[in-house]
Write a protein that binds this DNA or RNA. Sequence first.
RNA 1: GGCGCCGUAGCCAAGUGGUAAGGCAGAGGUCUGCAAAACCUCCAUCAUCGGUUCGAUUCCGAUCGGCGCCUCCA
Length: 515
Amino acid sequence: MSLRLYNTLTRSIESFVPLQPGRVTLYTCGPTVYNYAHIGNFRTFLFEDLLRRWLQASGYDVFHIMNLTDVDDKTIAGAVAAGQPLRTYVQPYIDAFHEDRRYLRIEDASVYPRATDFIAPMIELVEGLLARGVAYKGDDGSVYFAISRFPAYGKLSQLDRRELKVGASERVSADEYAKEDARDFALWKAARPDDEEVGAAWDAPFGRGRPGWHLECSAMALELVRQRTGLDVLDIHAGGVDLIFPHHEDEIAQSCAYTGRELFARYWVHGEFLKVGGEKMSKRYGNITTARDLREDGVDAGAIRLLMSQVHYRQRLDLTDAALASAREGSRRLGEFQNRLLAAAGHAAGDSTGGADAPPFAEAAERLDRELTEALDDDLNAPRAVAALFAFASAGNSALDAGQAAGPRALAAWRRAEGVLGVTSAVQVVKVGTAVEVGPAADSALAEAPPEGTDEGAQRSWAVRWAVRRKDAKAARDYGEADRIRALLRGAGWEVRDNRDGSLEVLRAGPKPPH
RNA sequence: GGCGCCGUAGCCAAGUGGUAAGGCAGAGGUCUGCAAAACCUCCAUCAUCGGUUCGAUUCCGAUCGGCGCCUCCA
């Protein structure tokens, strides 16, 4: 059995077969960089990251394109308001996007094309459409796509089965009057003073202006895929469900009218929304949580990824404090297990048994491999994949408690699963007694409050020193003092743990320290 | 008005025509000076009402409730 995906184009689950064996071209609609992306946006990017990782884990060479929309109404409005050139205005948001996605462990796409770097291919595309007679120049100087001349229009969103509500859009833009049909969309927008002011206007044979939103994706996708594979059809195109109509529908119309192909992308996959308090997270509702908000709260990306992974990508997910807390705890547990497994398997590798897996581990590993594959191949059923990971952790903890040896087999299975899911929190464990971090100041005056700031080293040093004091108090059977110190550490987010072998450790679950 | 989605234990959630994964929380237990961690055990009949079926949570219909899209929108 291999990967099956729900294809919005056919509204059914299909076996995934790429155009070229072993290679996949994947295009995902990226952020419009006029602001910080919120985690609703990132839910989609996270689902695409899972798709990307699973394709790679399945052996495919994936060419992943994620565009950055740096020229549209919002970026231009922002640049005008800030009195900056478009490219200048947008740069901090591009940087922030990459920072946020790295925090969330979203793998690098192969390329991140910026719309303003692809003006030439866009102009070429518009010229092609004009030449084919499916585009026309309106009275306002803009160029529009004529839906009536592209019979396949509406296939993706099943427009033929719908009836557009009259006046569903409150906005009646000025260019309505320039179009032949109200549903026609702009390929190229005639330059306005604001566009000129921020450098968002380009000369073109059909008039000075700037690209329409839909055009950007078509032009960049076609250009990059042609460069890479020589083809003019994508394997997979992904995005959020709200892009199905009109964005993706319009991309299909432009691209197919231009290439003459029946398909622009062979598989269209769409992720559902993230909701907050029952409502869609949207800048419009003002219920935004950004990735950086969560990071500042000390949330490990593993917890966020777990939260998202516990709900299927085609199912809406409601973000609540309880759900996040639940995911943090689960992710922490996985992190603790990972620490144990790594230590055990690392130790086993050097011992006389040759590092072989004890039967319970060999069995658990085989099962995890199988269940992970079954789950993810089944339209990326991450909830089931995560369940398999938890089952492995439970079995592994149990086996470790029983003194069973973990070896390379168990380690490989864990790494494969966690490598795709990335749902484990980093749990810092510092063994106390090694004196490595204690230093000469161990018995000098030590502040009861943890050090200010985010210096991990200072935090850890502080915790270790107190832990050493507690160790001494405990050795002296001064349990009152030992308990007081534990409470002190707990208040700063550290837990003290006495192990069975008499060793002592302090640990904390949190975001990965900056690297 | 059109198209569509959802309603599973305290919370989140997967799934199946033959009596329901997983996570969090909770209860009891093992271990521990006390904890923490880990492990073990316990904790649902799947919104309501009809229908089809030997049998439905799983198919069909209706009802109630929540939500999304219909050219800004991940």
